[in-house]
Design a protein around this nucleic acid. Structure first.
Lengths: 120, 120
DNA sequence: GGATCATATGAAGAGTTCTTCAACAATACC
DNA sequence: GGTATTGTTGAAGAACTCTTCATATGATCC
């Protein structure tokens, strides 16, 4: 069936209102196709801005704006190298977060189910 | 330090534009404090709408609207029980996604770092 | 120094999203 | 049946997000 959660397992996530805000802000960063593409590209290895823009097919300016967001959240970091600036994922937590998010989501009970409240 | 990604590890997440949209949509569902609180509450066990509203301190109507979204994405499901409707996380992928997201994010290089592009 | 390349930044507009309020629906109780 | 309870739904507005265009900064090359 693919349904039903085991109940409160040991590592159940608990969250106070404050952490919720922080966590939400970070997840927001992964919640856009453009950023997700940028991040998965970076997950494969460091990459300069222009290159990145091409890889994900966005304007360079747009990429730069998004990079700023990602930087502010501590998800990526950039180092200048000659004229370009090379970005990478900040650390392995970011890489794993990405991997796991994608993995779980692709194994979910495939989107779009809207029957509001049907009784058997 | 706490920096640097090992490069392309075996399970590197790859994503085409289409999946990116799907994944982003789902992550969007986790990217709001209200929904995050609702989900972590549900992660502890099933719960009726009213109860949930109280638990996360939101208006019932607001909760209902968000539940609809979560339902549409296949993250939660509701079963009528008498007058109330009891919601639960849809399956373990959802629970794990939540746990892992929270875990990784709480172990990230703590938010807000804005130095745009510093050279060494 | 002046031109050029690579990136960042600011402002503005279109499009979304979240919440609230008011009304509606389904169930239970008497 | 009528009334109370519990949830859902729709409309409307405020707030926020993403992209684009134009311009600015910093580094390199001649």
């Amino acid at each position: 069936m693919g349904h039903g959660v085991k109940g409160t397992s040991p590592s159940a996530a608990a969250l106070d209102a404050d952490s919720a805000v922080t966590v939400a802000a970070t997840l927001q960063a992964l919640a856009t196709p453009s950023r997700l593409l940028m991040l998965t590209r970076l997950r494969q290895g460091p990459c300069a801005v222009g290159e990145l823009a091409e890889a994900v097919d966005m304007e360079q300016s747009a990429v730069s704006h998004q990079l700023r967001l990602l930087r502010a959240l501590g998800l990526v970091s950039g180092r200048r190298s000659g004229r370009s600036i090379v970005y990478s994922l900040y650390d392995n937590h970011v890489a794993q977060l990405l991997d796991e998010a994608i993995y779980h989501i692709e194994h979910l009970g495939l989107e779009v189910e809207d029957v509001p409240t049907e009784s058997a």
